[in-house]
Design a protein around this nucleic acid. Structure first.
Lengths: 341, 341
DNA sequence: TTGAAAGCGCTAACAC
DNA sequence: GTGTTAGCGCTTTCAA
């Protein structure tokens, strides 16, 4: 019964007894078509099972209604719900979402730009923390595609950012430790490269200063955000003569490393030390002790980012904004009152 | 300097002093073009910064080189590396990957089919465990798009499946419990609806029978695969007069529920009970006790699925195959020797 | 309010 | 080996 070839706009036009232009209008600008003819068209569309050929439309309009998402690791639990949020908002607005897993590989980053230069995507969401390698060459300054940075701001580039207010959240986290009586607090995760780490360190220092507490340089340790780096940093701590009573970790993965190191040394947590994480990634509630941490509103971050990007695409928004969302303190069992000395 | 409008094939042709057809050939079928002219073309491409307009090409060829991935929850830790594998293989072969988060919502499933019917995707990877709602209507039987089912086979449909050999893996898992001296083993996670649960139960029963052990009906409990269902099932267990010494759980989430219930009742694990999970999702090593489980080769599953789908698309493979990969027993701390009664 | 027609940029027959 | 040419299916002036 049904044609072997998909129906085209011409088939619909013929059946409805109108021109293809009218069909196009009836579908895309219903207001510009008489009620009666619109009904005929709708009817014909139903009969033929017509669907607009997106390729033809895209070729004509030079828009693809696709958004490219560039992430270093799509499987990262830190991204999971951000992706869901991005996809949800895009889908709601009639856009599709294309994913590119870069693994921080410059070659791959460049490669994915083909989606932009070949008109297969209209804008980019960057979860990578930097501009895709090769962007500048591929696109002369004036014609950069619309982009938003998510989760990790992009240094030295006027790319709108959407994410958590890291400084403020780190301040809240530190305040919580202070409120539990801690005065000697270590910061695990200093890292010159990573913008986010810097922001969290700033929040930490701000809170300490506001509380009138000193930040001892020997209590500020480098770590690159991995579990192993957290473990190693903790070990380095033990060559000191004095120890902090609490650890504020740059993220949950680092905190896990700290917990592992401390537990291995025979300490009981949180009795002996308090640990504060950041992110609230999926395992945070399953570790022992379960992790007190700052929860990122990932779904919202994703939705807000896509919303901003689409607004830019549709020419509604001033590009250059920044949307900072609030992180939430999640109280679990890794932070306790400081024991009297 | 650089033109405000992107270069087209015509610009390249002009600069190289050849016809557009030759440019097209030089780029797509280099063998069919003389060396000297090919070099001229390459040079002109470089000068103009030309990139093929994918929309025009797709319109012409009726192929998009895009694959649609339909998943109920893109953020599910169980999918994370499968997605990475899918994307990696696709990207390697020059395909892009489009994601659709269905949330098991029939409306959304139908909605995503527009990517197929509008020529924006050439094939579908199904992580949902069922055919997208509305597929049959949208595509008369003869013209179903190429599809593969991943992770969860699709009942009553001749869709090629790629995933772990659940029966075999469940057998291995059960064998391990038996080898530790357990004889009274409960199966948590019976579920009539889910194909995967059935397969794992089959593997469990096979192993028990092979070991000459009875499967007591009261030790086979329903649970839908969530942590809460595992917890609840364990509670139901305690109205019995006898208890098993080990629990084989249909997945890690369920196992976590069992652990929570048992721990809450004051038992020490694995001293009092042994728990076996399935999947090895990210938190498995962080729970206390860390979970002994069967690890799914997720990256490989993703790569193999995409490989199969692309082979089908390129007309190389008989559609209707099944690729079963081997799961690996991961020994951690939730399973111990059975204590003498 | 509608129709005719141009053309988006490309690939693939077909001719040379 | 290379060029000419006909569309792929659609949107969008421009006229009526």
């Amino acid at each position: 019964m049904s044609a072997v070839k998909p129906a085209t706009i011409e088939d619909v036009a013929q059946l409805a007894g109108v021109s293809i232009a009218t069909v196009s209008r009836a579908l895309n600008e219903p207001g510009k078509v008489a009620d009666s003819t619109r009904r005929k068209v709708i009817e014909a569309v139903a009969q033929t099972g017509y669907t607009t050929n997106a390729m033809a439309r895209n070729l004509r309009t030079r828009r693809s209604n696709m958004i490219l998402i560039l992430a270093p690791d799509v499987g990262d639990p830190n991204f999971s719900n951000i992706l869901v949020g991005l996809e949800t908002e895009a889908s709601k607005r009639g856009y599709g979402v294309l994913i590119g897993n870069t693994r921080h590989d410059p070659t791959r980053e460049t490669d994915y730009l083909r989606f932009i230069s070949s008109n297969q995507a209209d804008g980019i969401v960057l979860l990578t923390g930097h501009l895709p390698f090769g962007l500048a060459q591929a696109h002369p300054a004036a014609r950069l595609p619309p982009m938003v940075a998510v989760n990790e701001p992009i240094a030295n580039a006027a790319i709108p950012f959407v994410g958590v207010d890291n400084v403020e959240a780190a301040r809240v986290a530190t305040d919580h430790l202070v409120s539990q009586g801690h005065r000697d607090i270590a910061f695990i995760g200093q890292s010159s490269g990573r913008v986010v780490a810097k922001l969290r360190e700033t929040g930490f220092r701000t809170a300490m200063q506001a509380a009138g507490l000193p930040v001892e340089p020997r209590f500020v340790l480098e770590a690159d955000g991995t579990t192993e780096s957290g473990r190693a940093a903790t070990e380095r701590m033990f060559v000191r003569d004095r120890l902090p009573s609490a650890f504020f970790c740059v993220n949950d993965a680092t905190a896990l490393g700290v917990i592992i190191a401390l537990t291995a040394r025979g300490y009981t947590l949180p009795r002996d030390f308090s640990i504060m994480g950041f992110d609230d990634i999926s395992f945070a509630s399953f570790v022992t002790p379960s992790l007190t941490t700052m929860k990122q509103p990932r779904l919202k971050i994703g939705e807000a980012s896509m919303d901003l990007l689409l607004a830019m695409l549709e020419g509604e928004a001033p590009s250059g904004r920044e949307i900072l969302l609030r992180a939430e303190l999640i109280l679990r069992n890794s932070v306790a009152m400081r024991r009297p000395a």
